[in-house]
């Protein structure tokens, strides 16, 4: 196997007395979609934020980019490497319009240092059209958009920086049927372009549709890493809910956990 574009090992993160992540490993290859699974509070969002530089990890773990050890201590570090993040809470500025949000932190400038609004708006239209999104007016504050439109804006923003790894934290949770399909198409499109994708979702159908591999977290620890092809739905659910602690229990409980404990 080739070197993973991003590889984490032994990542921990504590919030006061809460150990949100405990010696977690995760890697993603180019052109691979990894689903990061786990119950509520398992630490998925925390892991994403650590990778994105929004939270500093505790000392001890290592992050390798193209096999080289790197230090991600601020969002700018992750952006520079080529990691784009769509956060669960989207992280949009409600008071700014769509164009301003898309280019926030990466504005196009005219020579004397003023904002090149025309170029930004043109690129914004281009990008949104390539995602086949219809937003009537790019100059309205994002506070006025629907949940799905906000999601699309957040994804579009992540793609502007030409990233190599894209992390999406529950991107389809708030979307309608058509927009969910659109986001899944988009994820496949990214994979086909050779990007590494880390997808967090509670929707097993979505995961099975696009993911190549499922990495499971439980109570802040690794609880399994399965290829999607060749792993049953029940096995993954068992790992998520914790029945995977004991391989025998997993085999025994497969039929019942699948029916009773899946959410």
């Amino acid at each position: 196997m080739s070197t993973p574009v991003l590889e984490l090992s032994g990542i921990s993160k504590t919030f006061g007395a809460v150990r949100a992540l405990d010696e977690v490993d995760l890697h993603v290859q180019e052109g691979e979609v990894v689903a990061l699974l786990g119950d509520n509070g398992a630490g998925k969002s925390t892991l994403v934020k650590v990778i994105a530089g929004a939270h500093a990890a505790d000392t001890g773990g290592t992050v390798a980019w193209d096999g080289r050890a790197v230090d991600i201590s601020a969002p700018a570090d992750a952006q520079r490497l080529g990691i784009a993040t769509i956060y669960q809470d989207l992280a949009l500025c409600d008071n700014l319009d769509i164009v301003a949000n898309l280019f926030l932190g990466n504005e196009h400038l005219h020579f004397p240092g003023t904002l090149d609004e025309v170029e930004m708006e043109r690129r914004a239209w281009e990008l949104l059209r390539s995602l086949s999104v219809d937003i009537p007016d790019l100059r309205v504050p994002v506070a006025s958009l629907s949940g799905g439109q906000r999601q699309i804006v957040a994804i579009a923003r992540a793609l502007l920086g030409k990233p190599r790894v894209v992390m999406l934290d529950e991107p389809t949770a708030a979307l309608g049927v058509a927009q969910t399909a659109q986001v899944l198409d988009l994820i496949e499109q990214l994979r086909d372009q050779g990007l590494g994708v880390i997808l967090i979702s509670h929707n097993m159908a979505d995961v099975r549709a696009v993911a190549d591999r499922a990495a499971v977290l439980r109570l802040g620890r690794n609880a399994g890493d399965f290829p999607i092809a060749g792993t049953s739905y029940e096995e993954i659910v068992a790992a998520i809910t914790g029945a995977a602690d004991n391989p025998v229990a997993r085999r025994d409980g497969r039929q019942t956990t699948g029916a009773e404990e899946s959410r």
Binding site: A52, A54, A74, P75, A76, Q79, T85, Y87, L90, A91, L92, C93, D94, N95, L96, A100, L104, G105, N106, E107, L109, G113, T114, L115
Partner: peptide, 23 residues
């Protein structure tokens, strides 16, 4: 008209979003 001004509005609108945008 400037990036600096845009950053001020961004921090005022959602400081956490601005921070994650690398500001």
């Amino acid at each position: 008209k400037t990036r600096y001004g845009r950053m001020i509005y961004a921090v005022g609108g959602n400081a956490e979003a601005a921070r994650r945008a690398g500001i």
